[in-house]
């Protein structure tokens, strides 16, 4: 565990030593802020629902950018060899990198806490629902990070890793809006695959174990697949 924490520490710091982190955060805040507040005053509702509806798709675009370098860069530069010949297990490496990506997502969300604070000043905000929404956002980020980490372990090319992860994450995010493409018989399954549907439940303030289990199992599957890829190499 100590080793995983050390790797987490290094990876998390790495995000903030390059300008890319700040650019990603700035763009994320600009897009969410603009899309959310452009309609907020028209709706005249003291709630964060519209902010949360943006997140499944936005995170599907942002998390691959966050995770794509985690393995691909190391494999490309060759530092992967140094990492693997240090006394660390595959699990330490995967967990450390995964936690760093989730922590970065948390760092991305922290500035948006100003939205509920601001709203609670001008209206009556339901804090329970808001907190559930943030929790759901973190869970969703974890699921996407699992997918992104897996994509990154597949290739030495960051761009390919990013695109593969984006395709999978965007699919999970919007599949419930494409139900008419699928035959009747598998509609239930397809709906179950949708990150959007599960996230919307949580963001309504309903903490159902099925939704939690969904995100956790997507994350776990991603990490497990990463482990398999590492063993194969």
């Amino acid at each position: 565990m100590r080793q995983a924490l050390l790797i987490f520490n290094k990876e998390f710091k790495d995000y903030f030593t390059s300008p890319i982190a700040y650019i990603v955060i700035a763009i994320f805040l600009a897009v969410t802020g603009w899309l959310f507040f452009s309609a907020f005053f028209l709706n005249n509702q003291a709630e964060l629902r519209r902010f949360f509806t943006l997140l499944p798709l936005l995170f599907a675009l942002v998390m691959p950018l966050v995770t794509m370098r985690l393995f691909a860069e190391e494999i490309n530069v060759g530092s992967y060899e140094l990492l693997l010949t240090l006394p660390v297990t595959f699990r330490d490496i995967i967990v450390g990198k995964f936690m760093a990506a989730v922590a970065f997502a948390a760092a991305l969300l922290v500035p948006t806490l100003s939205y509920p604070i601001f709203i609670s000043m001008i209206g009556d905000l339901d804090w329970g629902v808001s907190i559930a929404g943030y929790l759901g956002a973190l869970l969703m980020a974890a699921a996407y990070a699992g997918v992104g980490l897996f994509a990154s372990s597949l290739t030495r090319n960051q761009i390919i890793a990013g695109i593969v992860a984006m395709v999978i994450c965007v699919f999970l995010a919007i599949v419930d809006q494409m139900l008419f493409f699928f035959p009747q018989s598998i509609l239930d399954l397809v709906t179950y695959l949708s990150a959007n549907a599960h996230f919307t439940n949580i963001a309504k303030g309903i903490l159902d174990s099925r939704d939690l289990l969904y995100f956790l199992s997507v994350a776990f599957l991603g990490l497990y697949a990463t482990h398999l890829v590492m063993e194969e190499k």
Partner: peptide, 15 residues
């Protein structure tokens, strides 16, 4: 037990 230096020392560049 082993200290290892791979060819051309592929270290983390940005650190």
């Amino acid at each position: 037990l082993i200290g290892y230096l791979p060819e051309s020392a592929p270290l983390y560049k940005g650190m």
